[in-house]
């Protein structure tokens, strides 16, 4: 479960998140959509503890919070194998649990899940952007987290790899009953993975509902988003 109540976040004087509240139950996926710069990544970073909220309350189920970063953030001095098992090797309580063989098997299994078998010994700089994204996906889920945050998991992927990742997001949710948040710009990802959608504009929540409602309901904001129209209540803000 992820529960966010009256979250407010400012950077200097600029209010980026203004009174955002939502709840994601166990085994549910929430999609967050909104303009570039509307604070989507900021919400995720606050939930996983990288940023501090100014006001508001955040509760998550006990256990690991995993995050797939927008720009992958793979460790470029480590190869794919070591990237994936980073948490298992570096965390004190986990280190003794696994033998080298276990770790090798885990890496193989995770790489298979994201469709990238046999690249264990490559370094992140030798991979394409989409491959890096998939490896970072594998790295994030290696500790069986109870809360999973995906920052644009399918951005920059071809449609088939996107589907692969989307399917996996759904499968993971069903298997582990984790609660997840997916930040995305793609309708296909929303339709395939999300149970609920939250739309941000100008630091405020302008829509909350199911993907179906998003496409149907007479909300001017979502209508503009779904039809990708230039006319509507949302204007690109010139700062």
């Amino acid at each position: 479960m992820i529960k966010v109540e009256h979250l407010i976040k400012k950077f200097d004087e600029k209010i980026v998140l203004n009174d955002i509240s939502f709840e994601v139950k166990d085994g549910e996926t929430l999609a967050i959509v909104g303009f570039s710069g509307s604070g989507k990544s900021t919400i995720l970073k606050i939930i996983c503890g990288l940023l501090e909220e100014d006001l508001g309350k955040i509760t998550t189920t006990e256990g690991d919070v995993a995050m797939v970063f927008q720009y992958s953030a793979l460790f470029d001095s480590l190869n794919v194998h070591d990237n994936i098992i980073f948490a298992l090797q570096e965390r004190k309580e986990l280190r003794k649990k696994y033998t080298t063989e276990d770790l090798d098997n885990i890496v193989k299994e995770k790489l298979k899940l994201v469709g990238l078998e046999g690249i264990e010994n490559k370094f992140p700089s030798e991979l394409s952007g989409g491959m890096q994204k998939r490896v970072s996906f594998a790295r994030a889920i290696v500790t069986n987290p109870k809360t999973i945050l995906y920052d644009e998991p399918t951005a920059g992927l071809d449609p088939i790899s996107s589907t692969l990742i989307e399917d996996y997001i759904v499968r993971l949710k069903e298997e582990t009953h984790a609660s997840s948040i997916v930040v995305t710009h793609q309708m296909s990802t929303i339709e395939r993975t999300a149970d609920k959608v939250l739309m941000l504009y100008n630091g405020k929540c302008v829509f909350k509902g199911t993907p179906k409602e998003m496409c149907e309901a007479g909300n001017e904001y979502t209508k503009q988003f779904v039809t990708a129209s230039l006319t509507g209540p949302m204007k690109m803000l010139a700062e």
């Binding site: 970063f69 965390r91 500790t143």
Partner: peptide, 25 residues
Amino acid sequence: SEIATMKVTEQIDAISVLGVDPVRY
């Protein structure tokens, strides 16, 4: 420059989120 690059490419954030203390690592 190595650590600064890790910082600006969010690799250090990734270390923290994976439950490892960046100072220790």
